[in-house]
Every structure is written in C-alpha cells, then in structure tokens.
Design a protein around this nucleic acid. Sequence first.
DNA 1: ACCTGAACACCGTTCAAGT
DNA 2: ACCTGAACACCGTTCAAGT
Lengths: 183, 183
Amino acid sequence: MGRTAQIDRSAILRTALDVADEHGLAAVTMNAVAKRLEVTAMALYRHVTDKADLLDGMVEALLTGIPTPEPGLAWNDRLTAMAGGIRAVATAHPGAFPLLLTRPAATSAALEIRESAYRALREAGLGQDAVERAERLLSTAILGFVASEAAGRFRNHGQATIDEDFAELLRWLQRVLPDPPTG
Amino acid sequence: MGRTAQIDRSAILRTALDVADEHGLAAVTMNAVAKRLEVTAMALYRHVTDKADLLDGMVEALLTGIPTPEPGLAWNDRLTAMAGGIRAVATAHPGAFPLLLTRPAATSAALEIRESAYRALREAGLGQDAVERAERLLSTAILGFVASEAAGRFRNHGQATIDEDFAELLRWLQRVLPDPPTG
DNA sequence: ACCTGAACACCGTTCAAGT
DNA sequence: ACCTGAACACCGTTCAAGT
C-alpha cells in the first residue's frame, strides 16, 4: 500500500485546457489528456469521475481565471473590468472557452461572478428584478461576442476591428444602464 | 448496375437534426443517423463527404429555416422579424442550434441573411463600416441570447421571464440604432 | 449507382491485478 | 493508494465486394 501520486485533478484540468487550446475541444479525449501526463487513460478516473466531470472542471477552471474587480472602482467601471476579464480568459483559452456557453455552471466560481455583477447593478439603482434581468442580458451579450471571437466567427476581420467592435459593444451596454457616477 | 437510392442528403440532414434535438449534439454519430434511416453508417458516405460535412449541412439547414423578412416592412421591423425568426429556429431545434456559434458559416444561406440585415441597417442611415459593425454586434447579441436559451442556461427561469428578457434585449438593441421611421 | 462486411485506429469506461 | 492491462461497446473512415 502507499504509492506517491503522479497526477492530481488540477494538473489534469490544466492539461485538458492546453489540449483544447492547441487542438480544439474535440481533441480533448481521456487518452490525449492522459498521454500528455505520461499516464494511461484509466489513471484519470481516480481524479475525475468521468469525462463530463472533466469538462465541468475545465469550466470551473476558466471561471476561476476571471478576476474579481477592484472594490474601490465605480460600479460601471467594475462591470467594464469584468467584461475585460472575461475577454482576457477567452483570449488565453480560445479552444476551451465555448464550453461556457454549452455547460451552464452553478458552481461557486460562477455564483461569485454573478454576485459581483448583481452588486454593481444594485449600486446602479436597479430593483432586484431589473438587476437579475440586466445581469442575464449583459452576460449573454458579452459571452456571445467573446465566444464568437474565440470560435473564429470574426476571423476575416483584423484585430483592430475586433477590438473596436468590443469597445462599441461595451458602449452600447453602458447606454442601456442608468447614468454612471461622475467622478 | 443501377439501384434505386434509399436515402439522400436532405433526408440525412433532417435525421441528424432530429437526433440532435432529441438526444443532444454528442448523439449525432454516423452510426446513430444511419440506424434511423435503416441503413449502415457506410452508406452515408455516398451523400456526405465526412462528418464535418454532415455538421456543416446541418448548419445550412438551420439557416435555411430563418425566413426572409417581408420587404414591405420598415427596416426596424424587418430586423425584429429576423431576430424572431432566429429564435423560432432555435426553439424548433434546440439541440442542433449551438452549431451556429461554433461553425462559422460562409454559405449562401448565411450570406443572404447577412445581406438582409445590411439592407435594413443601410436604410437606417448608417455608413458602410457602421453597417457591418452593427450587424456583427446585433447578430452576436441575438445568437448569444438564443444559444444560451437553447443550451438551457436560463432553465431555472419561467418561460414568461425568458420571453420578457428577449423583448427587453430587442428594446436595448433598438435603442442603440437611429430612430426608426414613424408610421 | 448504391449499399454492405470486414477491417483499422481510436473513443469512454469497467474491473481485476500489480506495486 | 495509485496506476495498468485486458476487455467491451462504440466511434469515424477506407476499401473491396455484392446487387
């Protein structure tokens, strides 16, 4: 009895993200991930329950990469910072990012991000129902754009054009919210 | 020589959409589609070049289901009608719909839809660059919402709430465009 | 012309066995 | 405790063979 572990869950998740980013989500197989870790596919089952659990773990790892905004900022700047953080994660993990749109996350990382957005929108003066609705619409608009970018739907356009598109989207979204604090 | 065909490409695509909607995209295998058609998987290769071609064909079939808006309508009503048409296709094909976000389509059906949007936005008075940017942002916002809905990201909310969310999104998007014609 | 059987390399997953 | 080998049912795909 007793044998020092060669791999752990977080190493598996990091490796799976690498595989997705280099060769696409379809290339994320138990075999491919295991091979990178110099282990057989069966060894993974000690650390993830099955492939669905692997993919859910990748989602959680992506969400953990979105930084919590500086609490000192005004609410509208906090929302903008979160949008930028989401886009930065998509840029760092373009292959894995589409998982966020297909695997609804109810994990703690997802809840924390949503709560940050709720706090900002409450400070904007919205009532509770409006806060929740605005969060759903803002998050889908931003996820939709960023996932489209990651999936290459804009690949015919230059980076400068895409950057300006994103800035324009943020301006659009600001315009449907109450006037921000002047500071 | 000569043997009457049992299947054709459009039957394969329809069957693949059915499988996706009933059991999810992951269930769309050559074997599963073939079995529904009472044929072996190898028979499909006479009508689709490979599985990627099958998935691209599904995208094209989904796009063909989006109706061209009535030319008599004002430009803002045409855009609203297109958004509704996209959502209707997602409702009819929730399992297959996420393909639209991951497989950028440059086929004729995709181009026709984009051209419809361009025409409406030009009538709104936007210059060519603004037209193209607005089309990218409108389409990603709408696709993002509708794909999220199809993927079940809102499944904790009632249908009435989701319907109202969609209406609110369309109002947001109207607000960033020039004032529509009064009629 | 259209479909099938056999074959290949590859999936996810299980379970008993090795250390 | 952790990993592997062998096994199973299932992938996508090719190619020669049947009608």
